[in-house]
Design a protein around this nucleic acid. Structure first.
Lengths: 239, 239
DNA sequence: CGTAGTATGATTGTATACAATTATACCTAA
DNA sequence: TTAGGTATAATTGTATACAATCATACTACG
């Protein structure tokens, strides 16, 4: 599995806290809980058949993940994401994806490189067939391979977090006409650059790849954010 | 104070959980708890005069902050930091500090710019006098002004987290011969670039500034991977 | 009619009791 | 003597009880 997966799957699977955490997280990402909605400990506890304790602990984690905001003695509210947040995250992420590709060029193993190649060729096949789900999975996997290959658990942790964070606002990015194929072409170029040990080129390509993904998402309206109360106001939009 | 300060000071001050969180965090950062040391809920609870509940919740936060690692049904252990972790973090941070300076060039207010100028001139004075504590404070403040000025709570959150994280391994970075003055010269150049609205130059300078800080730290052995009990706290005292 | 104050209910914060799991020590058998 | 297993202690995981705080609505008074 992933060496750098910070979420311990064991915990998430066997502890109530972990299960609650994942459940709430999924519900926020899927849109079941909307922005600024209040999450009540007893309600969620009853819904999941657990007491308040694991729910509360899950809340603390969710807050640190940035998915909810806890105001003392009041409650937990689903964090609002503005369009600017999304843009900022993509711009930050594009830098770090570039760095990741650069480092991966140096540290990637033969095995990982082969999986990268396989990934690209497989994605070509599914792109031709129009298999969107498989495309999405392969896209995910492609990036995760690079996260592992960069040999930095710090960078991997960041990128995994970012990736999961943007899932909140992403619809089916790859489903729009042709982007899936174009995206995979970019993957291939990145892979080739890494294979050729051209770190700078890999960095630049990965960087652009992310920018293109964002541009495409915006251009086609493929993400959605719920209008938030303080969005237009100054950045002071908290408590 | 800081618009983008994610740690709610209210919570930290008035809730047991917040106080416990800060206390443990300080103890890890100061070296009271060493790497791989096990933190026991009852022990810490008794030491601070609280029950296990707030301690446990603080643990969950500390884990997400990356300071401890919780293994299910076993315990909480202080996270080990390797030399490579430190290097990676500085290289990532140098990129993001550059991005921050670039964005700040666009969004900085007149007031913030003036505080930046004042900061640099004041630091010059204290550098001449050899006031190390004041230098450390001003260094902190300089970067925090940029974090605010970049107009991105996402980026600010990242950089603040990084900054606090590296406090674990930093000794008195600025105290070594001449680095304080050199560092402030770099600050001045960054400030001037921002003032001249030269975003690219500001970015490059901030980027280099961070790399230089790291190089200096490594060259002079000014960081310690294994914190030891009773050692001098981080130079960047924060209140 | 409107406002302030208070009472009541709801919700979170904390403490404690109990269950489950893990570590340790001692005992037994080869 | 040592390997293995069981009993006991220690520790974490979860549930529940109690305290503190906040929101709401109603009442009294102007």
């Amino acid at each position: 599995m992933h060496n750098y997966d910070v979420k311990q799957e064991v915990t998430d699977k066997y502890s109530l806290r972990g299960r609650v955490f994942n459940k709430i997280r999924e519900d926020i990402l899927s849109g079941k809980y909307r922005e600024h909605e209040e999450l009540k400990e007893v309600a969620i506890g009853e819904e999941l058949g657990v007491s308040r304790t694991p729910v509360r602990e899950a809340f603390r984690q969710l807050e640190l993940e940035g998915l909810i905001q806890i105001v003392p003695n009041k409650g937990a509210y689903v964090t609002g994401i503005t369009a600017k947040d999304v843009e900022d995250i993509y711009r930050i992420r594009s830098l770090l994806e570039g760095l990741c590709a650069k480092w991966a060029t140096e540290y990637i193993t033969q095995e990982q490189l082969e999986e990268l190649e396989e990934n690209v060729y497989l994605a070509d096949f599914h792109a031709a067939k129009g298999h969107l789900d498989q495309m999405a999975d392969l896209d995910n996997r492609f990036h995760h391979i690079l996260y592992e290959a960069c040999n930095s658990k710090q960078l991997a942790r960041l990128l995994i977090d970012f990736h999961e964070y943007v899932l909140r606002v992403r619809k089916k990015t790859l489903s729009s006409g042709g982007r899936g194929r174009i995206s995979n072409d970019e993957h291939r170029q990145i892979m080739e650059a890494i294979k050729a040990k051209d770190a700078d080129r890999a960095e630049a390509l990965a960087h652009e790849h992310m920018i293109n993904a964002y541009d495409n998402m915006v251009k086609n309206g493929l993400y959605h954010i719920y209008p938030s109360y303080g969005e237009d106001g100054p950045a002071d939009g908290k408590g």
